[in-house]
């Protein structure tokens, strides 16, 4: 069953308070040398049947209307994974 993975990130010009919190916590745990963190979201959509161009177009629309809010977020990637076709990828 194919899976479409959608990555959503806060827009570059939008302050990311969650990312800042993570960035502040890292050196406290001894992880040095990280100058900035931005936190986004990853959605895994399992698709019934083949991922045709139409299916992909409709998922892209879902990504930009529901999964992200275009005022504050960008859909930075939309990737198709075929879980059966690439078992060697499942480490």
């Amino acid at each position: 069953m194919p899976r479409v993975v959608v990555h959503v990130m806060p827009k570059p010009e939008i302050l990311d308070p969650q990312g800042k919190a993570v960035a502040a916590a890292l050196p406290r745990l001894g992880f040095e040398g990280i100058s900035s963190v931005r936190q986004g979201k990853r959605f895994e959509l399992e698709v019934d049947g083949e991922v045709t161009d139409e299916v992909l177009a409709s998922l892209r629309e879902a990504a930009t209307t529901l999964l992200s809010n275009p005022v504050i977020e960008d859909v930075v990637a939309l990737e198709v994974e075929d879980l059966q076709a690439a078992p060697e990828a499942q480490a």
């Binding site: 806060p10 969650q18 800042k20 809010n69 005022v71 504050i72």
Partner: peptide, 17 residues
């Protein structure tokens, strides 16, 4: 109202978190 686009803009987490 912002998500519905009846009003412009959006709310994000408080800057002091």
């Amino acid at each position: 109202l912002c998500e519905t686009h009846l009003l412009p803009g959006a709310m994000i987490k408080n800057a002091h978190r």
